[in-house]
Design a protein around this nucleic acid. Structure first.
Lengths: 197, 197, 197, 197
DNA sequence: CCATAACCGAGACGGTACGTCCAGTCTTCTA
DNA sequence: TAGAAGACTGGACGTACCGTCTCGGTTATGG
């Protein structure tokens, strides 16, 4: 018997685009939970099999759809480096807060976060394609600051990025309070106090 | 019109127990996603209506089932106060790390976390019955430390608890690294550095 | 506009044979209902289009496959004419009974009969290529007997052949009883009683 | 585990009726081959599962629908017995010819015949509920004629009924000629010639 | 101390979506 | 340029559960 896995070279780009577009539209219209593969296929004018052929799950489709909407995927995300690590981190966390507070990530993002937590494969992909690069550039910025003597010589970049993003994420997921610029600034101040020499 | 809300006085305790037990068993056997109300009813020897009568959703049943398994619910959770805030927080976070690292919370807990993120009602209940009390006693301990001069006078307890739990939660959810006692200790050290006068 | 009807001269004989062989094998392995065009194409090592190009339906392929297995198609089928019409008809009906009772025609034949009943085009083809010739040679034999004075002068050959084959077919299709030589003999006796002068 | 077979006492008569009605309508509108279970369910305003719960196949539904349309099922079918066996059989076969020639049985009937040939369970049911009773009353009439000395003492009722119905059925299925009263009369004449003392 | 109203187990019901299968068409690559 | 390979749209399949709705039966008061 020949292979059961499809040949990517013959893949229809038109269908791929239509599916991602339909998924993005529907997830904002209906929310993630009410989204169905059948609806995506219908909206995209595509047979269901074409979705099942190329994606393993609803979550994977939506994930790809959100990625396609962002250009974040590649190395395009660059952190500012003005030399003032406090200012740069404030800029970073203010942006993050704005994203999390936006109605879009507030709904679809939550649901997708939930999906990612549930499906190990999605989690892997998320770590590799989104979270990983983000954490890495953040670590780079912190290492630069350490080299510049702005942070303690023994500051652990792995721990530091968790200290930076974790509290905000915690607040966001649990709805513990507002995510505004003031919050971001106070968080940066505390974190730097922990990391400084 | 007849009453829409059932009479709790007539509720069958036997059925309630059977349902929670069945739910707890099945969520560990199948995982949260593959768990169904029908299966719970069948395993519990109970009509589906009896579940729908007393719980609004699958998530609510599982949530109650997990709560019933813990005794944490009431004020039973008391933080140590040896006078040494660093030691006490280490104890606290080491315990949290152990819980999160346990295989039980590692599977069902993740799924339930995901569910909680999705369902606002569940999130409310979670905040009120589990998260809230935990954060409150933690804040109390920090306030005591502040009063004792071990923390800065302007340390914000709300931010402080997020700084404490957020990074660990972040690491746990995203699978960024091991959750051991060493990690807990290093985290406490950093956080205290941020909060100290 | 390109041609709608393919050019038979360029037809691949190798493919045609492979398709008929695969169809014959699969119909005995799976039965007619579970047989699919895709399976035939796969087994024959042929593109689906090659089947659709040359046959209008699954039934037509199987029909051709069964014909290819028999040599009956041409005028090769000749009835015995020993001068004894009773003996000749017994020979004829005994053979028919044997064929119908054989496990092969008992399964595939039933299914193909069903298909033929459903599809007018197939029925036409069946009448023209199989049933028609068979009935015609039978009528010829009966006419010869009539000429020889063994049958009534006004015996209608069309009705006569139905009287001959109809009861056996009826019994076969409905599974009303065994199809053995004794049955064939008794049937011939009755029919001749009806047709004799 | 409890039984997987549903409880007929709880069956919804309203749904049963709606399904049979919808099936009867659709089979005449679309023909048997284009009929789908989904369409029946939709037309009947019924869940698909309700059909699958009570019938094993599309054929079984249509079969029941046709039966429900006829009152033939019970012993209601009584053959005439005027004492003149020839006249009675002419009446019988003329009626049969009319039925077979009617446009309704000419389309749905053919398809259902095909289905019955394919599905052994349907064939059993057909034999038991329709064909069997019909053949039995016919045999009874023939036995009465035999007792009255109108048929040969050794005439076999089983063979006789096949001789009577078989040829007409054969002509009908294969489209070999018209099914009119003249044909019925000539057939009866031949058959009686075969069966008379 | 029964009547009656509720909860209860059971499971059929109308629905929705699932993931699979195959029909028949279209496209691409190879011989 | 016919054919193999197989991806495509489309649609029905049969299954799984959803949440609602009877249906007896079994409590457990309240008139």
């Amino acid at each position: 018997m020949t292979s059961r896995t499809p040949d990517p070279a013959r893949r229809s780009e038109r269908s791929r685009q239509a599916i991602l577009t339909a998924a993005a539209e529907l997830v904002t219209e209906l929310g993630y939970a009410r989204l169905t593969i059948e609806a995506i296929a219908a909206r995209a004018g595509v047979g269901k099999q074409t979705i099942y052929r190329w994606w393993p799950s609803k979550g994977a489709v939506v994930f790809d759809a959100l990625l396609a909407g962002n250009a974040n995927e590649a190395g395009s995300l660059a952190l500012p480096d003005t030399g003032d690590v406090a200012a740069d981190l404030r800029t970073l966390l203010r942006g993050t807060a704005d994203e999390l507070a936006s109605p879009f990530l507030g709904s679809a993002g939550r649901a997708l976060a939930a999906e990612v937590l549930t499906d190990p494969k999605l989690l892997d992909e998320y770590r590799e394609r989104l979270l990983g690069p983000l954490l890495e550039v953040t670590r780079q910025r912190l290492r630069a600051a350490r080299t510049a003597g702005q942070l303690a010589a023994d500051a652990d970049p792995d721990l530091a990025v968790e200290l930076l993003y974790g509290p905000m994420y915690y607040r966001w997921l649990h709805g513990l309070g507002p995510l505004d610029h003031g919050y971001a600034d106070r968080l940066v101040e505390l974190v730097l106090r922990a990391l400084r020499p």
